[in-house]
Simulated scan of single mutants.
Amino acid sequence: MRIAIATTQVPFLRGGAEIHAASLRHELELRGIEADIVSIPFKWYPPARLLDAMLMARLVDLSAVNGQPIDRVITLKFPAYYIEHACKIGWVLHQHRQAYDLFETPFGDLHHDAEGRAVAAEIRKWDERYLPEHRALFANSRVVRDRLERHNGIRSEVLYHPPASAERYRCAGFEPFILAPGRLDPMKRQLLALDAFRSLPPEVRLVLIGPSTGPYGDAVSAAAQALGPHRIIMRGIVSEAEKLDLYARCLGVYNGVYDEDYGYVTLEAFLAGKPVITHTDSGGPLEFVRDGENGFVVPPAGAEIAAAIARLAARPALAQELGDAGRRLLAALGIDWDKIIARLVA
């Protein structure tokens, strides 16, 4: 069987979606299936460029290559899921959220003028027309499934997936630092964590890992410098080995995202046996984090985050108890590539 994995990518940027596509290709190849990734370059501004990308996707011909048929296409993201194919399976990581749940919010950019609003309306129209073309439609979380049904009346099946290198995560103790993985971005809300550290004892530290760009990254850097580099450690982009080591040694993990689709951070933390601190409006993490059982679910406020971190710092044994519960939850859910591939190629 020959399968094309259709996705989109912003040139020169690599994040969770790109890791997901690479993992899917790897897992298909391990099972003797020939697979490759077909990426459509993506630019979202000005709004009219979105229409160009949508048409580009619709015009892509993946019926055959070099005279050999492509048996199946697995689509992952907007607008790649508009590609036409006789056997198309959708595994939706997310729609173009600026046309949906982020529309008319501080995180959206299509509601500011008539052109943007028209483009958002066209995106919704295309989603409702072309997403039902898929022979089977999966969502990578309940959050994404619920958005599809709420906004478009389209039903899908939740299909969770493990993070890359899941078998390599481990626990090597509970040192007095909180790990906050992810690019510095307003929707990741690292500034809330820095606010929390204003009232925490100096022996507890915060380690931030991930790329930093734009005004928000500058704001995080300035706040970290004000609190002191001995307390707020900005590591930037780290190697896979360094990331695994930080997960293994940290006291807990802060995942302060706003209405995340799914996100690997929660699963990575639980695989390392570490508790997660997240928020009541964080979306995807709430499918896994149970307040007081395997982490803390708190309102998005510095004082609330500080109180949760203080509990872990005062009693590392509690961090171990919560982290062990998170690991048991993942084991019970049975998030496994064998099951995933079986559903995608059925």
Rank of each mutant, 00 (worst) to 15 (best):
A48K: 15
A48G: 11
R49Q: 13
R49P: 06
R49C: 12
L50S: 12
D52C: 15
A53G: 10
M54I: 14
M54Q: 11
M54N: 06
L55E: 14
M56S: 06
R58Q: 09
L59I: 08
D61Q: 06
D61I: 01
L62H: 08
S63D: 08
V65I: 11
V65L: 11
G67Y: 03
Q68I: 06
P69Y: 04
I70H: 04
D71E: 01
T75K: 04
L76C: 03
L76S: 01
F78H: 08
P79W: 07
A80P: 12
Y81S: 09
I83C: 09
H85T: 10
H85A: 08
A86D: 08
C87L: 05
K88N: 01
K88V: 02
I89L: 07
G90Y: 08
W91K: 04
V92F: 06
L93S: 08
H94R: 06
Q95I: 01
H96F: 15
Q98M: 11
Q98C: 15
A99K: 02
Y100T: 06
Y100F: 15
D101G: 12
L102H: 11
L102I: 09
E104H: 06
T105K: 10
F107T: 05
L110P: 10
H111I: 10
H112S: 12
H112F: 11
H112V: 13
E115K: 13
E115F: 13
E115Q: 13
G116S: 07
G116F: 09
R117L: 09
R117I: 14
V119S: 07
A120E: 04
A120I: 05
E122N: 05
E122P: 09
I123C: 03
I123Q: 02
R124C: 12
K125T: 10
W126M: 06
E128W: 04
R129F: 03
Y130K: 01
Y130G: 03
Y130S: 01
L131S: 00
P132C: 00
H134Y: 09
H134S: 05
H134R: 06
A136E: 03
A136F: 03
F138W: 01
S141C: 10
R142Y: 02
